[in-house]
C-alpha cells in the first residue's frame, strides 16, 4: 500500500484498522468520501481481529491496534521521547515519570517521526517534517510541536 499504491502512512493504517461504516457516515463529506474509497478498495487488507502492532521505519515508528480494542496499547511521551507498549508498567520500567501517558483510541495510529528525516516512501505527499512530525492522537497539545525522537 505504501510503496506500490503510494498511500500515506496514516491512510494505510486506516486501511488496516478501518473506521466503522457508522463512523464514516458521520464524517464530513470530503473525509467520508476518502474513507469510503479507502475501505472499499483496501477491504481485503483490513486486519480484522485482535492486534496491536508497532512498526519501525527509517525516520519514525507507528503503533496501531485493532478497531474495537481487542488488544491493549498504551503510549507515552516525554519531550521528544515517544514510547508504546501493551502495558503502562512496561513504559514506566524504562521511563518512570513520562509527561503524558494515554491509551490511544482503537484503530487510530500513533505515529512518531524523527525531525529532519524524510520518509522516502512518502514522496510528494510528505509535508515538511515539522508540519507532520507527530500525528500522535490523544494528546493534541503535545502534538503541535515538532519532536525529535531519541531512540
Amino acid at each position: 500500500m505504501l510503496r506500490r499504491h503510494k498511500l500515506p502512512l496514516e491512510l494505510a493504517c486506516k486501511a488496516l484498522a478501518a473506521p466503522l461504516w457508522s463512523e464514516i457516515d458521520r464524517m464530513p463529506e470530503q473525509e467520508a468520501a476518502l474513507m469510503r474509497s479507502v475501505r472499499a478498495v483496501y477491504g481485503p487488507a483490513m486486519l480484522n481481529g485482535p492486534f496491536a502492532i508497532v512498526l519501525g521505519f527509517n525516520g519514525g515508528m507507528v503503533a496501531l491496534n485493532d478497531r474495537i480494542k481487542l488488544r491493549p496499547l498504551v503510549a507515552a511521551r516525554s519531550g521528544s521521547l515517544v514510547m508504546v507498549a501493551s502495558e503502562e508498567s512496561a513504559i514506566r520500567a524504562v521511563m518512570p515519570s513520562p509527561e503524558h501517558v494515554w491509551a490511544p483510541k482503537a484503530g487510530e495510529p500513533v505515529i512518531a517521526r524523527v525531525k529532519g528525516m524524510d520518509w522516502p516512501i512518502h514522496g510528494d505527499l510528505h509535508l515538511g517534517p515539522a508540519e507532520v512530525s507527530c500525528a500522535v492522537t490523544g494528546v493534541e497539545p503535545a502534538c503541535e510541536e515538532a519532536v525529535e525522537v531519541a531512540v
Binding site: L34, R36, S37, V41
Partner: peptide
C-alpha cells in the same frame, strides 16, 4: 473498485481524494 486510491494533502493537515480519484 479502482486499482488504488490517489490522495492529496487537503491543506489542513489531512488528506483528501485526488481529483477524479476514489470509488
Amino acid at each position: 473498485k479502482p486499482d488504488s486510491v490517489a490522495v492529496e494533502m487537503d491543506g489542513k493537515g489531512g488528506y483528501r481524494l485526488a481529483e477524479g480519484a476514489g470509488m
